[in-house]
């Protein structure tokens, strides 16, 4: 099932097919305002700080990180839902930042977003059908009311709901069903690239599996490319072809999914993996645990040098001074740590 995708796991340099989404040196800074009526900019939060990564057609890139890592900001900036401060966002060979707002609106048809919160992300006053049909209206992808209704019905069936549910309101659905509606809406305009922002983390375990399987089926059926943002390392490993790890606005490790779990290089990735309790008693008894000291620093005031040095078990004085860059330590396995 995944053969075609493993082949497309190309490297930065030797890409055979050009990436569908290519993010280069992306920076997203938010001003910190202070003073009377919040007028003066006193500094910046570097939510995403010089991140480069690409996503190949048909692949899933998992983006992992804890709060303040910038993973959600990166996902939004990739779709220009947030304007980047600097850097390039190249989709299918075109720099999205060069597009006028009207051109962007046309291009947006190919880009979709699935939100985390199945409760907050749906309009409580709109029927499921109207919500799913809205992108069809916006992009004029239907030939009249009847056709729209038919397409909405098809979309409902695609995500495992029944056509008759089109007339119901969000409160009549369970969390899992709402998330399916969110997926159907994201698919309505037939996008090629979807940002999935914590798509299953608000769902119960038994419902989570249904959604994960659905997202995988849809990817295969419609040849979709995913950027999957999540904090659950097990979910990310299950779906992703390659995985990027972020910490305080910086990319710290990037590799194919297997290498990241079998041989994590960055001390943060190692700690992150060891922190996840696994549902296996024998394994839990024998596993080595790295418990990080301290809290995640505030992104308002990130540490100098390597942003991870304040919590890193192997940090030295040098780490406080030097900003590490991403280096290829094994084929297609990148990490930003001067101790490697």
């Amino acid at each position: 099932m995944r053969e075609n995708k493993i082949k497309s796991d190309a490297t930065e340099g030797a890409a055979k097919t050009p990436p569908l989404m290519d993010i280069r040196n992306l920076k997203v800074y938010f001003p910190i305002k202070s003073g009377v009526l919040l007028g003066r900019t006193v500094g910046h939060i570097k939510a995403v700080d010089d991140v480069s990564l690409h996503i190949n057609p048909g692949e899933t890139l998992g983006l992992v990180g804890e709060s303040g890592s910038g993973k959600t900001t990166l996902g939004r900036a990739a779709l220009r839902l947030i304007e980047p401060t600097d850097g390039q966002v190249i989709f299918d060979g075109q720099e999205l930042r060069d597009l006028s707002s009207q051109e962007m609106r046309q291009r947006r048809r190919e880009l979709g977003f699935v939100f985390q919160d199945p409760y907050g992300s749906l309009n409580p006053r709109m029927t499921a059908g109207n919500m799913i049909g809205e992108p069809l209206k916006i992009h004029k992808l239907h030939s009249g009311k009847e056709d729209r209704r038919r397409q909405v019905g098809d979309l409902l069936e695609t995500v495992g709901l029944s056509r008759s549910m089109a007339d119901r309101y969000p409160h009549e659905f369970s969390g899992g069903q709402r998330q399916r509606i969110g997926v159907a809406r994201a698919l309505a305009a037939k996008p090629r690239f979807l940002v999935l922002d914590e798509p299953v983390s608000a769902l119960d375990v038994s419902i989570q599996a249904q959604l994960i399987n659905l997202l995988q089926d849809l990817q295969e059926e419609f040849n979709l490319t995913y950027l999957l943002i999540a904090h659950d390392l097990s979910v990310v490993r299950h779906i992703s072809d390659r995985i990027a790890v972020m910490y305080l606005g910086k990319l710290v490790e990037l590799s194919d999914y297997k290498a990241l779990y079998d041989n994590p290089l960055h001390p943060y990735t190692q700690a992150l993996l060891s922190a996840v309790p696994l549902p296996d008693r024998a394994l839990e008894r024998s596993r080595e645990r790295i418990v990080l000291k301290g809290d995640i620093p505030s992104p308002r005031n990130p540490p100098t040098g390597c942003v991870f040095h304040t919590r890193c078990p192997i940090a030295t004085d040098e780490c406080r001074m030097t900003i590490p860059t991403m280096k290829e330590h094994a084929p297609n396995h990148y990490a930003a740590c001067i101790k490697l």
């Binding site: 804890e66 904090h231 390392l233 700690a271 992150l272 922190a275 990080l292 809290d295 995640i296 919590r311």
Partner: peptide, 8 residues
């Protein structure tokens, strides 16, 4: 809580 804080 975040994963690493959870563990702590």
């Amino acid at each position: 809580l975040d994963v690493t804080i959870q563990a702590q």
